[in-house]
């Protein structure tokens, strides 16, 4: 295991005592793309910050490639690449200088740093912008430079904190491609996200995290499987008091695995059986069916099933 987290705890502020991370255990296999999925404030960023030596844990232990990140922080940093949520590029240096000096920080000789810089600029399609300054770059491009810089010293693990926050859809897809490309170089990726599509698309394994605890951890496919349904029908109703009765009726329809009340209606989890839609609609119509959405079961569904809340709440 390249990343091992044991009983990790972080309490901010000695008096107020806000618990950001509440006993997390994680194991990330070498070469995997690993996702921490959860809403804002779940403790994802704190977990990553501890793993990358920037925050000290209150309790517990993190080892990166077997090196303890608290006791041997400088040594551990050699194995770590980080792309934080915010842009930390050196504003006084060009793109290529950013990468070049980063290599020097990690003990590269000048020729080696130069060669590595050229290689990365090429790989991340940045050669044309090599002499631009960070302030001149779009968010997506700056993100790509940060990834290139973060892996320039050939770390074993790359930590990405909310990599697609603030990116437009096109840049997000370019970033996904860049991350997938890292797999071929044998770099393990640990990323946080609150976009379930991102976790689903990129990650080999996902840990769903809420209130500083890991609720469940598995492959995206297995997590979705665990819901026991392929389709999710969200029914919005006019007749609120009738919801319990509607739930009971819906549950009896063949193909429906679960019906539960939501804020203003009923959620139906179902297998993709033929003709189910019309059965659901005719059952719900007497209760003042206003609107309905149908989605595929996703990691979001898993999260809702586990917490009763939406990822975006």
């Amino acid at each position: 295991m390249i990343v091992e987290v044991r009983g990790l705890k972080k309490v901010y502020g000695s008096k107020t005592g806000v618990t950001a991370v509440d006993g997390i255990d994680l194991n990330v296999a070498d070469g995997a793309i690993y996702g921490l999925l959860g809403p804002n404030g779940a403790g994802k960023t704190t977990t990553i910050s501890i793993c990358t030596t920037r925050v000290l844990p209150t309790a517990g232990q993190v080892r990166i490639a077997g090196v303890d990140v608290v006791a041997e922080a400088p040594h551990a940093r050699q194995y770590i690449g980080v792309v934080p949520q915010y842009n930390t590029l050196d504003r006084a240096c060009t793109i290529s200088e950013n990468i070049f000096f980063h290599c020097l920080f990690f003990g590269f000789s000048r020729p080696a740093a130069k060669a590595r810089t050229a290689e990365l600029l090429e790989q991340f399609h940045l050669t044309e912008r090599a002499e631009a300054y960070p302030a001149q770059l779009s968010g997506g491009l700056a993100q790509r430079v940060q990834i290139a810089r973060a892996i320039s010293h050939r770390p074993r693990v790359l930590f990405l904190d909310e990599p697609s926050a603030g990116l437009d859809p096109q840049s997000r897809i370019a970033m996904w491609d860049a991350v997938k490309g890292l797999r071929h170089q044998g770099i393990t990726v640990v990323m946080t996200t609150h976009y379930m599509e991102e976790a689903d698309e990129l990650c080999d394994r996902v840990a769903i995290i809420d209130h500083g605890k890991i609720l469940v951890e598995d492959t995206p496919a297995a997590l979705k499987q665990s819901v026991g349904a392929q389709k999710v029908y969200e029914l919005h109703l006019r007749d609120q008091p009738g919801r319990p009765e509607l739930c009971a009726r819906l549950s009896r329809i063949e193909g429906v695995s679960k019906a539960e009340q939501t804020g203003d209606g009923v959620r139906v989890l179902a297998h993709g059986a033929d003709g189910l839609l019309s059965d659901v609609v005719s059952a719900a119509s007497p209760f003042g069916l206003k609107d309905m959405t149908i989605t595929e079961a996703s990691l979001e569904t898993v999260f809702i099933q586990l917490t009763g809340r939406d990822l975006r709440e």
């Binding site: 920037r54 400088p74 040594h75 940093r77 980080v82 934080p84 842009n87 930390t88 980063h102 920080f105």
Partner: peptide, 15 residues
């Protein structure tokens, strides 16, 4: 504002 310091602190050096 810039948090540029973060990349420096990630050097293989004691803080």
């Amino acid at each position: 504002i810039t948090r540029e310091i973060d990349d420096r602190v990630m050097c293989p050096l004691p803080v």
